[in-house]
């Protein structure tokens, strides 16, 4: 059975842009992000990342696009408890294999520093707080210097204060590091402080 979730969606995100997506629950925000991140391939139309068409790419090629060009932050942190915090951050970088392991570790350490949790680097994910976990997940999304970071309610599981911290980090990334961001949120205050807000309703962009 096929369900039409999105319809006539036509959006683009420019380099260095901080975009938020809002809309009622069930309007298709997550679905949009999954499609844009190449994880969901059940769609009609075109998806271009960095000018390249993503249709007709093989599973392996899509995986390498995700690895190289996209960073994803979910509502849940999805850290691997078997690895230390810094190793979790390094994993996508190890997969990319562009840097030597020692250099990559240095880079991961710097990313953790940007997020203010470098002191937790050697701990296991189950030994740090929920807010810290989410910041580790952001560091992981940053490790390969992606073109675009997507977030699906990344602050949804956090209290007000931790949510603020994460939001400030996103803003700093956009301003200081010229990072492009596309963040789904339910928080109108949050959305108002981004460069641009995309509002959705019933699978359409308003």
């Amino acid at each position: 059975m096929t369900v039409k979730v999105l319809d006539s969606v036509d959006i683009s995100v420019a380099k260095g842009e901080f975009v938020s997506v809002i809309g009622k629950s069930g309007c298709g925000k997550s679905t949009l992000l999954y499609i844009l991140s190449t994880m969901d391939t059940d769609f009609e139309g075109t998806l271009r990342i960095d000018g390249n068409d993503m249709r007709n790419l093989k599973d392996k090629q899509l995986a390498s696009v995700r690895n190289d060009k996209i960073g994803f932050v979910f509502q849940f942190h999805y850290l691997l408890n078997e690895f230390s915090v810094i190793r979790n951050v390094m994993l996508p970088g190890l997969k990319l294999g562009k840097l030597k392991e020692s250099d990559l570790e240095q880079k991961a350490y710097e990313k953790l520093k940007i997020l203010g949790i470098e002191t937790e680097a050697r701990k296991k994910p189950n030994q740090i707080s929920g807010g810290q976990k989410q910041r580790v997940a952001i560091a992981r999304a940053l490790i390969n210097d992606p073109l675009l970071i997507m977030g699906d309610e990344p602050t949804g599981n956090l209290d007000k204060m931790n949510g603020e911290i994460v939001f400030d980090i996103f803003q700093e990334l956009a301003q200081v590091y010229n990072q492009s961001l596309l963040i789904v949120t339910h928080d109108i205050d949050f959305a108002n402080r981004t460069h641009r807000t995309i509002e959705m309703e019933d699978g359409r962009v308003l």
């Binding site: 994880m39 696009v65 995700r66 690895n67 691997l80 994993l91």
Partner: peptide, 16 residues
């Protein structure tokens, strides 16, 4: 399952 999902989301392919 979760670990496999995140590995795939961060760029590990099915064959990995």
């Amino acid at each position: 399952m979760d670990s496999i999902a995140i590995l795939k989301a961060t760029g590990f392919s099915g064959s990995d």
